[in-house]
Computed example of a mutant assay.
Amino acid sequence: MASQQAPWQITIPKVSPGPARVWPAEPRQTAQVRFADGRVFEAPVGTQLEAYIRAAYPNPPVPIIAAIINRELRELTYHIVTDVDVTPITLADSDGVRIYRRSLSFLMMVAIHELFPEARVFVDHSVPFGGYFCEVQGHPPFTKGELGRIEARMREIVAEDAPIGKERVPLEEAIALFEERGETEKVRLLKRRQKAYLTLYSLRGVRDYFHGYMVPSAGYLRYFALQPMPPG
């Protein structure tokens, strides 16, 4: 006859439902950035996002233009003040392309202002091969030689890695700036604005308003070419 084993059971010891261990601590002076690949980088509170990106991606195969932080698009000049999740935005992303084109337009406007201060440039519409069609007022259509000078000046500014500043100014100040420059359409639109301030970007002393984010400096804008198109 087979022997029978005595019945048995697992006993789980009772744990006292006492309070969790909590102790006072000093405020942390650093903030952590966690990237999608699991890597975590730490720096003093207030460090710009660009510094984290450069540390995590010293030689990216595609330029990193901005980032998604906790599901929101942010510029590289954004200050990190608490722990966040970050997903880089590159030129392979639609948001990255828009930021790059917008910044490149500003670079071109600044170069033209320095070489031909009487000329006013208007970015009209996009073209199929990925650029913008621009019109010039106050100056005859640029010749091929003049376009070459403008492109060369743009590349000089890129080589300098000139910073693109950002400031919030009272709306009245912004309207006065554009009135002085004769930009009547922009003034008309700003007078309808509900907010009492406006964000302006600046590059080499030229200030302007743009609908969207920019790169932090001209050094990011290495890929471009200027081409004449009819009617000039």
Rank of each mutant, 00 (worst) to 15 (best):
G138C: 08
I150H: 03
F142V: 06
T143K: 10
Y78K: 06
M109G: 13
H125W: 00
A152W: 09
A92W: 04
S126C: 06
R153N: 08
H139W: 14
R102P: 01
I80D: 00
D93F: 00
E146L: 06
V136Q: 07
P128G: 03
Y132M: 11
G96K: 00
I112D: 01
F129S: 11
K144F: 13
T87N: 12
T143W: 09
R101C: 00
H79P: 09
S94W: 11
T77S: 13
H113E: 13
I150M: 10
R149L: 15
V84I: 12
V86R: 01
I80W: 01
R120A: 11
D93P: 03
L147R: 08
E72H: 09
E72A: 10
F133N: 13
H139N: 09
F106Q: 07
F106R: 03
S94E: 14
L76E: 02
E156F: 10
K144L: 13
M154T: 05
V121L: 14
R120E: 09
L107W: 03
R74E: 07
I89N: 00
V123A: 00
G130L: 02
D85M: 13
D95H: 14
F129A: 05
T77H: 09
E146K: 10
R101P: 00
L91M: 05
G130Q: 03
D124T: 10
F133A: 15
V121D: 06
R98T: 15
R153K: 14
G138K: 09
F116Y: 14
Y100S: 01
F133Y: 14
S126A: 12
E135C: 10
S103V: 00
I99H: 05
L73G: 04
G148W: 10
G145W: 10
A119F: 02
V110A: 10
V81M: 11
G148V: 10
R98H: 14
M154K: 06
E114K: 11
E135Q: 15
V81A: 13
Y100M: 00
T82I: 04
V136L: 08
P128M: 03
H113S: 14
S94L: 13
E156R: 14
Q137M: 11
S105E: 14
Q137P: 00
M108V: 12
L104M: 15
P117R: 04
